[in-house]
Design a protein around this nucleic acid. Structure first.
Lengths: 94, 94
DNA sequence: TTACATTTGACACTTCTTGACAAGACAAAT
DNA sequence: ATTTGTCTTGTCAAGAAGTGTCAAATGTAA
């Protein structure tokens, strides 16, 4: 499960781009790109932004999805996940 | 910055407990407990729960603060942090 | 089959985390 | 001024986790 990865794959396929091409654009191996799309590996902020540019999606959308995935990974499957996230949202607004 | 750590310290001091005592309760070094209260080291879920019991605070409060800290750490100081957290909150409700 | 795209597992390498220890800073009391 | 007790800081080694690459395996279409 990985929202950004899904989005990247979906967008990439819509534009008939190969993993190889997308991987080249951020200068990583195709294998890594494959893993990133399936949520097996994480990308860094710079890579996410470059991908947004290549795929002509707003940087904001990709970066916030990327952060979203990080948040979800941080709370895992904890029963109190929702409360934890809510608390973080409240605190961060200061 | 670390909300759970602050809360632990505050509660511990109100009850006149020493770092040493609290540390002993979760079987860690005093130095580590000191760092945990100042957000320099992380505790694990079990330790957080044990501390809640010792300090007579609800487990839910401590665990959700602990998750809150993890979320905030995950998004860092990213300008899109708030959006990322909001997105995660939406997605997690399914 | 052949050709090409993607996935998988293994690997080296680096960075992060963990718990432990010793030494230092600090304050209170004598 | 020295002792005592609490807390903090820096460092260390072992283990865990992350990063990117390669080669082999799998899938897919002509």
């Amino acid at each position: 499960m990985n929202y950004l990865g899904q989005k990247i794959r979906e967008t990439r396929e819509k534009q008939n781009l190969l993993l190889r091409q997308v991987a080249a654009h951020i200068e990583v191996d195709t294998a890594l790109m494959s893993k990133a799309e399936r949520g097996e590996r994480n990308l860094n902020r710079e890579q996410v932004i470059k991908l947004a540019q290549l795929l002509k999606v707003s940087k904001e959308e990709f970066v916030s999805l990327w952060l979203c995935d990080k948040v979800i990974e941080a709370v895992g499957t904890d029963p109190l996940a929702e409360q934890g996230i809510k608390k973080a949202l409240t605190k961060i607004k200061d």
